[in-house]
Structures are given as structure tokens and as C-alpha cells.
Design a protein around this nucleic acid. Structure first.
Length: 855
RNA sequence: GCGGGUGUGGCGGAAUGGCAGACGCGCAUGAUUUAGGAUCAUGUGUCUUUGACGUGGAGGUUCGAGUCCUCUCACCCGCACCA
């Protein structure tokens, strides 16, 4: 008697089998057993590892299911698949819990890991758990610290004073990500800028390679590449040196004025061609020259007041484009290096200290911002690029800045050049005179990695009274996090208060020393975890080179687009550094990247505060893992956002129930007792109904293979399998089961349906495949479509006359165009439209349609 | 402002330049059932229905356009005084 479909029963059964038999454990090849380099049989499928806050959500379910479908599919194709899992376990969630409760963050972290671990196993994700990594455990962060030291030795990790985000209420430094609209994410107080000495990684050294190596990627979403490109923000132009002179009256600055004539300020500009139109000069309020320039002048008071105000204005407010431009005159002048003319120097907060040199030449005629400033302060505007009339008033004066292309005018010897020529010629002319050079500028800043936080990897540096800054030697790693009781930050890292830990001995001279008390940004942990998986249990190396060479780079990386910039760019940077250190043999870690869309519910992103969360646990309990897995991929294209629909998951559950019944009923009828291998059908001996089902089955094999393997269109793969199920259902009452060949076709269709569905619904796949008398569906090779049965013998073509479908014609699949046309011209629906007309064109699209044009 | 993307039934969505709406949800009718649920069958873009119209809008290319080109509107995402 057919068993009822009880997902929980079969799912827990197979999950236990997979666990007990270590089905998905994939060891590294024995040393020497494989050729050096990436294994031709090796595939690395990786999903971004979760941050363990509480429990897994539907986004995780989608992410890990997608990876699992691909991993299972590749295994069926004969690949050895590395499909590991781990936890990005350092970070603020557990730390904030610790601050609130006084209990150690490790406790919350490990609890969350246990929960997510259980959830992933309950979903039947085929993971090699022997490779699990947890970034907050000493056996992992030992190697994070080791990597820090590799960068340190290369001069890529360094300290400098830098402004950071400071929350006065929480008494702590915040990461940029924790600053939301200029306010603290946790308490909403406005964030202040504070100068602190911080550790940085010199990612700017790699800016050019990070841009160039996009060419080395096989398949990344264009928008991710674009976002990174914009973030790196390369622009080309020139550094131009301006001299500074005293004001003509010389009243206030007489005594020091002489010295200032030698003073030089460099600006970066993308438009050296407009230099003749530079009518004033601006310094950022934070520019180091400002104070000296104005000291003792009549402008001093006003400038100092302005600077103080600008520095106290929040970054968000100051960066607002809508804000009216403001500035103050310094009483000093710069010398335009091409005209020799004196131009006034202003201080204005629309010039930022952290881009370029913090000083600009202002060309109001051809820069909108400079134009607005010139208007407000009555400064001269000169047209130096021939400007279209719509930018001018009746007198020919500019009414708006013209930033476009044009011919140079009012520019002396350079008149008549194009914008592009002007950029080159003006720079070259100045370069010969030592006043400029070609320059490239990036928006990318060095990566600030120190955090004044407890729950992170300690930076492995000690400060010795005698030897200064000393890296912790390899043998002394890991620098363990000390156990403390008060996790609340008080302006510096909670670690700084752990005196017994901070006080240590200098590794060089043995004298008394103090440990660095800052910890590393958690993005450091996640920038190399994909390497650790290959050697997760090794305690003598971070990763084994031969194993890395065999498995990496990652063939398919899958995750959310929210990591488009930070995580993905930091990982690319790390890989390049490791390549330069000859620790890995490739420069890009992720060959193919897939960014999945988010799951919404009731019109919004799921969140606990909105109370619109769909719990994976509840859904799995109600419908089973197979249904939840299948539904998250059936919702729509995996890369698009999609809205969770309670009835949608029910529909998929019904579909799986139908598959279950179709197969179990067939087994009860003895239909599947047929031979275990596919019979070699004789095309000529098949009835049309048999052939139709056989063709459908082969078409679905073909489509599913392409949809999973090449297109990542899981929704259409599932649709196709549903169609197959519908067709199987439709022959239930037909005569198909009355003949041996009919029964064998039906049995074949049922088997293929189970096989094709298995990556999505692996438990049902294992159960039904077993009930059919086979073993270990997860090891079976992927079905291949039989090209003899991909099309039917006859096909129906639509017949168009002047673009409108007027009739249909059934012809042999391989009929010639002549035969088709001859048949078409007999059709009553066509004859009607041909009468009294002249046939001017005939188009036959094989397998599609026929199109006739008449006049 | 700059960059990227998306617009198709009541809903999610499908469609190498070739019969728009596959598949699923929902809905309707029927069968089964004491009833409900489940299951099965049939139907389901719109309209003034012998036919016409339909993929945000307007043009264009083509025998043929959701798909390619030009312009335009709406929404979403990223960056944003980047010199």
C-alpha cells in the first residue's frame, strides 16, 4: 500500500544516513596523488558564511539551498565538490549582548552557531562539516593574526592618526557601517569626528590592480564590478603647483610675508585645460596651511571662526549637496602658474581634506560648484572653453558653468585646442617648468582595521619601552583574548583595562611591554576564510599550499549584494597580497559570483522589529525541508528580490505530494519493476503517445541541465519538472500502461522526474530512488538527454499572412521549406488571404513558423 | 547630479528577433465527500468576440519586436560638493 508523504519522517531519516556515512565529506587529495594546480575534477562551491546572530533567516535558506543545488548537481556530473561552511563569528551582535548581560560574547556566539548549524542540517544542505571554521575561535584567529603580521612585514599594515566616528553617548568608536545618517546605530546620538591613532592596511597600493583585474574574472554581475569601480574612483588629471604671495597692502602680514613667497600648494585637477579660467583658489578648512597663512592677518579671527564651525559640522550635513556654499577670504593670494595672475585664496567647506590634496583651483566658468561659489562672493568668471549659447545671457556672459567639451578660448598659446589636447598640452607645458605633472587620483582610502572593541582578533603587536613597536613572533600566536568582566567600551578598547593581559614582556629584549589593545575589523576575518576551509584542522599552517592549488580559486561564490564592495573588495585585496607573498598562485579568489535577491514579506524586508518574519523552522516543520528549499528557488529568478507568499509554498508542497503519489502508485502497480537501465527504444516502434512522453522527458532533462548548470534559473527548471509531472499525470488513464513499451516509457519518465528533482528535494529524491530499487541517488551520474528524442516526428507551425497568424500546419519535423510552403498554400485559412493578392515574400523558420507577405 | 537596474494578466513570473502570458498562486464550475480539507477534471489577458486589441508611453528597424535602436515616463538600488 502506498505510503503517505510525511516529509519530516523521510528527511530526518536521510539526514541521519548522510551524517553517519559521512556522505559529503570530501577530503583533500593525497599529496602527490594529483597533478599540481587546480584539479580538473575539483569544483569549489561557496556561499558567503553567515554571521551568527540568533538564527538563520529565509535569506540564508535561499543562499545555502542555491549553493546546495549547484554542489549536488556538480557531484552528479562527476566532480569532487568542496562545499564547506563556517561562521563569521566575531562582531557586535554578541558583544552588545555581552555588554547588556555581562556574560561573555563567546557564549552567545556559540549558542547562535549551534542553532544555525542545526537549521542547516535540517535543510539537508550537503556540507562537509569536517571543514567548519569559526572565526572567533583561537585556532582560526591565530592565523588571522599571522596574516596581519605578513602584511605588517611587507609594510602593508601601518599606524597613523586619523579621524574616526565617535559616539559620545556610547563612549566608543564606531565603524562606518554603524553610522546611519550621521548618527549612532545603537543610541541615535550624532556621531562626532575624533582623531585617534589607528591601524590601516595599505589597500590603496593595490587600487590599480583591483581595477585592472576585473578582466581576470569569469562571471561577476556587472553592477558589482561597477560599484567597486566607482568606489575605487580612479580619475586622471594633473597635480599643479601654485605659489602663494602676500596681499598687496601687506598690512598685517608684513614680517612673515617674505617667507611666504616661497610657499607652494599643490592641487589635483582633472581639468588642467581650464587653468586660464582659475580665478580663485580654495583650501579645505582642515588644510594644514590655513592656520599659518592667516596668522597675524586681519582675516585671522574670521577664518578661525569659520574653520571651527566647519569642523564641528557633521559630515552628513557638510556633504549635503543642497547646502549653500560658504567660505571666507584669507587675505592671501595664489599665483596662477599659466597666467602669473594673483587669485584670492578662500577657505570653504565644500573642499574636502580627504580627497586629492585638500586644495583646489576654482574654475567657475566650467565647474558648477565653483560657479555657485563665485556667484555668491562676486568672483570673476572667465570662459575658457568655447561655450554653447544656452549657457550665456544676451551679453555673452556665462549664466551657468559649462562642464562639457569644447575648444579652448581665452587661453593664450593654447587657444584652439580641444579639451583633450588642452589637458595634455597645458600639463606638459607646466611640467617643463617644474610646476605640474600628470597624476592619477583614487577615492579609495586605506582600510582602517583597528577597532576599540573586545570581540575581535587582537592585533598581534606589543609596545616595548626600549624596542618600540614589536610584532608578536609566530611561536607566540595566537594572542588570546583575555577573559574580562566589563565589556562596555569607555573610549578605548575594553582590552586596555585588562592589566594582567596588557602588561607583557617584549619578545625582543624581554623587558616590560604593553600589548596593543585594539582588535581587528571583522572584515579581516572574512577576507581569507575561503582559504582556511582547505586546511581547517591544520594547526601548523594557515592553509596547505598544495590543497589550495588543487581547490582554488572558488568556482562559484554566492551571496547577497550587500557585500558588493567591502567584503568582496577586501577579499580580492587579500588574495593579491598573498599572491605577491607567493602564498597562493592566483590573483582573484572568486571566478564566478552570483548575487541573490532578497526575500520580502508583506511588502517589506523581513525584520523582527516590523514583525514580518517568516521563520524557516516553522516552515520546515509544516511543509518539510524539500518544499521550503524548492519554494525559495521557485519564487522567481534567484538574482531578483521576491516576496514570500504563504500560498506559494503550499503550491510547491502540493507539487511534491503529487510527485510522491505518482511514483508510489506506479511502484504499487509494479510499473517500476522494469529493467534498471533505460531500454534502447526503437524510434520506429513507438506509438505517438509513447514518443510524446519520451520527447517531453528528454526535453525536460535538457532544460533542467542547462537551467541549473549554466543559467542559474532554478525557477524555470522546476517549472519544467512540473510540466513533466503534468504530462505523466495526463497519461494516467491513457493506454500507455497497457503495452510493455508504454510501461517502460512511463517508468523512464517517472525515474527522470525523481532524478531531476533531487537537487532541489534531495530527501524525496533519496527516498523515492530507494523505493524504486536503486541506491545512493546523490552518487548517481546526471541524466543525459537522448538526442534522438528531443523533438517529435511532426510539428505544428503557425502560418502568418502579413504578420498575423491565420492558420496552422502539421508537417514532418524535418520537412523541407518547399514542402512546407506547398502545404501551407493549400490551407483554407491561408487561401482566403491569398486570393487576388500578389505573394511578395515567403519566410520559413524551421520548427517555428511560416510567414507570407502579400500585396 | 552621476552610475546601474526594473516596468508583461488579479498575484509571483515564462518567452535563442518567430504562435505573448509556460509553470505556480488565486479564482470559477464539476466529480468525489455527511461536511470541510485533500484529491481529480475543465476553464481563467481585455473588449463592443465571424473579429480586434494587448508586454509603462511615443517613434523607428524588420516579413515579424516583450526582446534591437532613438526619445520619454515611473519606480528601485548604489555613489554623491571626488575638484
Amino acid at each position: 500500500m502506498a505510503r503517505k508523504y510525511v516529509p519530516e519522517e523521510i528527511e530526518t531519516k536521510w539526514q541521519k544516513v548522510w551524517e553517519d556515512e559521512e556522505t559529503f565529506v570530501t577530503p583533500n587529495p593525497e599529496p602527490g596523488a594529483v597533478p599540481v594546480g587546480k584539479g580538473s575534477d575539483a569544483t569549489y562551491v561557496l556561499e558567503m558564511f553567515p554571521y551568527p546572530s540568533g538564527s538563520a533567516h529565509m535569506g540564508h535558506v535561499k543562499n545555502y539551498t542555491m549553493g546546495d543545488v549547484i554542489a549536488r548537481f556538480r557531484r552528479h556530473q562527476g566532480q569532487r565538490v568542496l562545499h564547506p561552511m563556517g561562521y563569521d563569528a566575531f562582531g557586535l551582535n554578541s558583544e552588545n549582548m555581552a555588554i547588556k548581560t555581562g556574560e561573555p560574547p563567546a557564549k552567545f556566539t556559540e549558542e547562535a552557531i549551534a542553532t544555525i548549524n542545526r537549521q542547516l542540517r535540517r535543510l539537508g544542505v550537503s556540507i562537509d562539516w569536517t571543514r567548519e571554521v569559526v572565526t572567533s575561535r583561537p585556532e582560526y584567529y591565530k592565523w588571522t593574526q599571522w596574516l596581519f603580521l605578513q602584511l605588517y612585514k611587507k609594510g602593508l599594515a601601518y599606524k597613523k592618526e586619523a579621524p574616526v566616528n565617535w559616539c559620545p553617548s556610547c563612549q566608543t568608536v564606531l565603524a562606518n557601517e554603524q553610522v546611519v545618517d550621521g548618527a549612532c546605530e545603537r543610541c541615535d546620538s550624532p556621531v562626532e569626528a575624533k582623531k585617534l591613532t589607528q591601524w590601516f592596511f595599505r589597500i590603496t597600493d593595490y587600487a590599480e590592480r583591483l581595477l585592472q583585474d576585473f578582466d581576470k574574472l569569469e562571471s561577476w554581475p556587472e553592477r558589482v564590478v561597477t560599484m567597486q569601480r566607482n568606489w575605487i574612483g580612479r580619475s586622471t588629471g594633473a597635480d599643479v603647483v601654485f605659489g602663494i604671495v602676500d596681499d598687496e597692502a601687506g598690512a598685517a602680514g608684513d614680517e612673515t610675508g617674505a617667507a611666504r613667497e616661497d610657499l607652494k600648494v599643490t592641487v589635483f585637477t582633472t581639468r588642467p585645460d581650464t587653468l586660464f579660467g582659475a580665478t580663485f583658489f580654495i583650501l579645505a578648512p582642515e588644510h594644514p596651511l590655513v592656520e599659518g597663512l592667516v596668522s597675524g592677518t586681519s582675516c585671522e579671527e574670521e577664518v578661525k571662526r569659520y574653520v571651527a564651525k566647519a569642523i564641528n559640522t557633521s559630515a552628513i550635513e557638510r556633504a549635503s549637496v543642497e547646502k549653500e556654499k560658504t567660505g571666507v577670504f584669507t587675505g592671501r593670494y595664489a599665483v596662477n602658474p599659466v597666467t602669473g595672475g594673483k587669485i584670492p585664496i578662500y577657505v570653504a567647506d565644500y573642499v574636502m581634506m580627504d580627497y586629492g590634496t585638500g586644495a583646489i583651483m576654482a574654475v567657475p566658468g566650467h565647474d558648477e560648484r565653483d560657479f555657485a561659489f563665485a556667484q555668491k562672493y562676486g568672483l570673476e568668471v572667465i570662459e575658457v572653453i568655447d561655450t554653447p549659447a544656452e549657457f550665456k545671457d544676451a551679453d555673452g556672459r556665462l549664466t551657468a558653468a559649462y562642464p562639457g567639451d569644447g575648444v579652448l578660448v581665452n587661453s593664450g598659446r593654447f587657444n584652439g585646442l580641444s579639451k583633450a589636447e588642452g589637458i595634455v598640452k597645458v600639463t606638459e607645458w607646466l611640467k617643463e617648468r617644474g610646476k605640474a605633472d600628470f597624476a592619477v587620483n583614487y577615492k579609495l582610502r586605506d582600510w582602517l582595521v583597528s577597532r576599540q572593541r573586545y570581540w575581535g582578533a587582537p592585533i598581534p603587536i606589543v609596545y616595548c619601552e626600549k624596542c618600540g613597536e614589536v610584532p608578536v613572533p609566530h611561536e607566540q600566536l595566537p594572542v588570546l583574548l583575555p577573559e574580562i568582566t566589563d565589556y562596555a567600551p569607555k573610549g578605548k578598547s575594553p582590552l586596555a583595562a585588562a592589566e594582567h593581559w596588557v602588561n607583557t614582556k617584549c619578545p625582543v629584549c624581554g623587558g616590560s611591554a604593553r600589548r596593543e589593545s585594539d582588535t581587528m575589523d571583522t572584515f579581516v576575518d572574512s577576507s581569507w576564510y575561503y582559504l582556511r576551509y582547505v586546511s581547517a584542522r591544520r594547526d601548523d599552517v594557515a592553509f596547505d599550499r598544495a590543497a589550495v592549488d588543487y581547490w582554488l580559486p572558488v568556482d562559484q561564490y554566492i551571496g547577497g549584494v550587500e557585500h558588493a564592495i567591502l567584503h568582496l573588495m577586501y577579499s580580492r585585496f587579500f588574495t593579491k597580497v598573498l599572491y605577491d607573498l607567493d602564498l597562493v598562485g592566483f590573483e582573484e579568489p572568486f571566478r564566478r559570483l552570483f548575487t541573490q535577491g532578497m526575500i520580502y514579506y508583506r511588502g517589506a524586508k523581513m525584520s523582527k522589529s516590523k514583525g514580518n518574519v517568516v521563520s524557516p523552522d516553522e516552515m520546515v516543520a509544516k511543509y518539510g525541508a524539500d518544499s521550503v528549499r524548492s519554494y525559495v528557488l521557485f519564487m522567481g529568478p534567484a538574482e531578483s528580490d521576491a516576496e514570500w507568499n504563504d500560498q506559494g509554498v503550499e503550491g510547491v508542497y502540493r507539487f511534491l505530494g503529487r510527485v510522491w503519489r505518482q511514483v508510489t502508485d506506479a511502484i504499487d502497480e509494479g510499473l517500476l519493476r522494469a529493467a534498471k537501465t533505460a531500454p534502447a527504444w526503437d524510434p520506429a516502434a513507438l506509438s505517438s503517445a509513447e514518443r510524446a512522453l519520451l520527447v517531453k522527458t528528454n526535453q525536460v532533462i535538457e532544460k533542467t541541465t542547462v537551467d541549473i548548470g549554466e543559467r542559474f534559473r532554478f525557477n524555470t527548471a522546476l517549472s519544467a519538472i512540473m510540466e513533466l509531472s503534468n504530462d505523466i499525470g495526463a497519461v494516467r488513464t491513457s493506454g500507455l500502461r497497457e503495452t510493455p513499451s508504454g510501461r517502460s516509457v512511463l517508468a523512464f519518465a517517472l525515474k527522470m522526474m525523481v532524478r531531476l528533482l533531487e537537487p532541489f528535494a534531495p530527501h524525496m529524491g533519496a527516498e523515492l530512488w530507494g523505493m524504486m530499487g536503486h541506491e545512493a541517488v546523490w552518487d548517481a551520474s546526471w541524466p543525459e538527454a537522448d538526442s534522438r528524442f528531443l523533438t517529435d516526428e511532426t510539428i505544428e507551425l503557425a502560418v502568418q499572412v502579413n504578420g498575423k497568424v491565420r492558420d496552422r500546419v502539421v508537417v514532418a519535423q524535418d520537412a523541407s521549406a518547399e514542402d512546407v510552403l506547398a502545404a501551407v498554400k493549400e490551407l483554407p485559412g491561408v487561401v482566403k488571404y491569398l486570393e487576388g493578392m500578389t505573394l511578395v515574400k515567403e519566410v520559413v523558420v524551421p520548427g517555428r513558423l511560416v510567414s507570407l507577405v502579400v500585396k
